[in-house]
Design a protein around this nucleic acid. Structure first.
Ligand SMILES: [Mn+2]
Ligand SMILES: [Mn+2]
Ligand SMILES: [Mn+2]
Ligand SMILES: [Mn+2]
Lengths: 217, 217
DNA sequence: AAATATTTTTAGACAAACCTAAAAATATAA
DNA sequence: TTATATTTTTAGGTTTGTCTAAAAATATTT
């Protein structure tokens, strides 16, 4: 059994391994992800290595063991199921769910997780378009493309976001972008890499930073 | 803001004050309730007094301040709402919910609590017949009488239990006693204070200990 | 009212998770 | 290939909540 803190570390390492093409994650990147200090991370890495949850080579970063990966995925499953629950059953908006799910994910009961999954009808994606791992840890990988990667004239439907912070999602709410919206690229501004886009009969300019965080299909 | 541990202490003190006619609770009784040691309790009492959540007189026990009472009731509200959710929506049985609710009660979000309450239709009692405090902390006190307090020949309907441990509830499940069951006292055995009771066309003998933990109306 | 028993508090430690500052290792630049 | 910069680890502390053993206070007997 692992503590809440250990679970958060495992999840962070998993997340980093996803975005860094499965390379070993550095101490600093983990500290950054968890807004803590490198020295604290080193302490925890020793403990997780001791428990055989990570492969830790001093000065050369870490990767999850199979055991660690399964735990990380289990926490991710809980997180996303709760987010789905909050939006679908308790009428939370997609920018209100993250922090609460961050706590709910640590309530440790397989019976609870699986009954919740049943109750929700085995949803495949959370409110941000992220895939929900199934009971056995299988994940249907999302096949989206970043809005920033589309060419001028192309268009697609929003299927997810890369950043689930309430700051980012509130902004999307403000400009009326949500899952399912059809967006067309009108123009790309070389000066700052921003994009003119059109959707719902409105035309607006969004930054490259924003565009990178929206997935289309 | 208070820690999970502080919340559990406040809840324990509240519970003890209920069962001990509002008298100050002793260090040992709290230690016993939380299965910890008296020395640990003393440490925590100092901290809670510092935070003005309890009235603490050295060597003479503690009582909750109004501030502490409101927090205790809030945690109790969350606990019972989650228990109701687990039974009504996720088909848990009444002996499976306590430990999970013990964790869920610490997820700190008023929005979550109130939306959950809405979603469940503002239930008044949890699966064990305990009253669920409302948003403002008001509690409809249960008006039941202990099965052990009835006279021979009298009968009543089960409206709650005093002990919500899974051990006790599993036993009730085994002998088919549940909320709503009509029970009649056939006889009282002076030797060990046990009772012969009848319900659902079956007659059985239950100990005084069991009878004290069942509320009837 | 003493003597004894019980309860409570204090003293001193420990583990978990965090921190700052300094040292060591690795990576980058000259 | 040295010199410099960056990253990571170690050393030494802090806070929270726990513990055991001993001391102090309160309660119960005799
Ligand atoms: Mn978390
Ligand atoms: Mn999400
Ligand atoms: Mn609890
Ligand atoms: Mn209950």
């Amino acid at each position: 059994m692992q503590t809440l803190t250990e679970e958060n570390y495992l999840k962070a390492i998993y997340k980093l391994s996803r975005s860094n093409a499965n390379e070993a994650s550095s101490t600093n990147s983990i500290a950054n992800e968890l807004t803590t200090k490198a020295a604290s991370v080193t302490d925890m890495l020793k403990k997780l290595a001791e428990k055989k949850l990570i492969n830790y080579v001093k000065y050369h970063g870490v990767s999850l063991t199979e055991k660690g990966r399964l735990i990380a995925i289990k926490i991710l499953r809980r997180h996303r199921l709760w987010e789905y629950f909050l939006v679908e059953k308790l009428s939370f908006s997609w920018d209100e769910v993250h922090d609460v799910a961050e706590e709910l994910e640590h309530v440790n009961s397989d019976l609870l997780t699986d009954r919740l999954d049943d109750f929700l009808g085995h949803p495949k994606f959370d409110p941000h378009g992220d895939p929900i791992p199934d009971k056995d840890g299988n994940i249907t990988q999302r096949s989206g493309i970043q809005l920033s990667a589309l060419a001028v004239g192309e268009s697609g439907k929003v299927i997810g976001v890369r950043d689930s912070s309430s700051e980012f999602l509130s902004y999307l709410n403000e400009i009326d972008i949500a899952l399912g919206i059809e967006i067309k690229i009108l123009n790309k501004i070389d000066f700052d890499n921003s994009l003119m886009i059109e959707y719902n009969n409105q035309k607006i300019n969004i930054s490259h930073q924003i565009a990178k965080n929206i997935y289309l299909k």
